[in-house]
Amino acid sequence: MYELLLFAVAIGAGFLGALLGLGGGIIVVPALTLLYHVDIRYAIAASLISVVATSSGAAASYLKDSLTNLRLAVFLEVGTVVGAISGFLIASHISSKALYVLFAVFLLFSSVMMLRKREEHPALVDHPWATKLRLASGYPDDKGVYQNYKVSNVPFGLFVMLLAGVLSALLGIGSGIFKVLAMDGAMKLPIKVSSATSNFMIGVTASASASAYFIRGDVRPEIASPVALGIIVGSYFGAKSMSRIPAARIRQIFVVVLAIVSLQMIWKGVQ
């Protein structure tokens, strides 16, 4: 019965994760630790698996729709993977309580970031690195018209990706918010491209650390199977519902959820 409930929670996490571009891990870790009292190391390992599932499923659609900037993703993946491996090495030397507090701080930060109003502010010129690597591209807008865009602040974007990689390994989440913020805010990409490219990358970031957790034995099939399955089902329906549900409303609800959960995690960490 408990595992069926976990499966249902994972469907919800996948649904919201797909809508918000977070990968679902941000719900899975608190659910496993707070509702089921699973040790946070098992929870982090299971959520890394779910991020990989969400990312691969979403990437298929985004690539097909030409929303993912493949060249930019490969460039930024260098930073995220190096960060993820560094995060894994650090995680082995940090106690569970410290992870709780770190995770809670990250949730609070995410809440604040999600309250920010998003506006399109396209880059007028390419950064020299963007020109050299031909990172500028195009995407179909809401009307299906192909729009070209440029890419700015490339070195800063790469640095944030490295930081996002460290957090991914430490907290068991895809750090999608950091990635979207870096591409949308710093590199001035269209929000659709930022979300799609972030979704594409979070799987690689998560798999870098998930593979290590998997070999070590922290990814328990008894936990990861219902979680991953639920995430796959939920993210499928989340992607299908994206056009019908206003993202702003979902984000408002999610900010409240994140704030409550982060406070609970801080309480657990300091006990």
Binding site: R71, A84, A208
Partner: peptide, 20 residues
Amino acid sequence: YLAAMALFVFFALLGSFFLG
């Protein structure tokens, strides 16, 4: 350039297996 980056990421991912 991009091929080299993708291969770097690939080998970094393989290396992470061995870290476990």
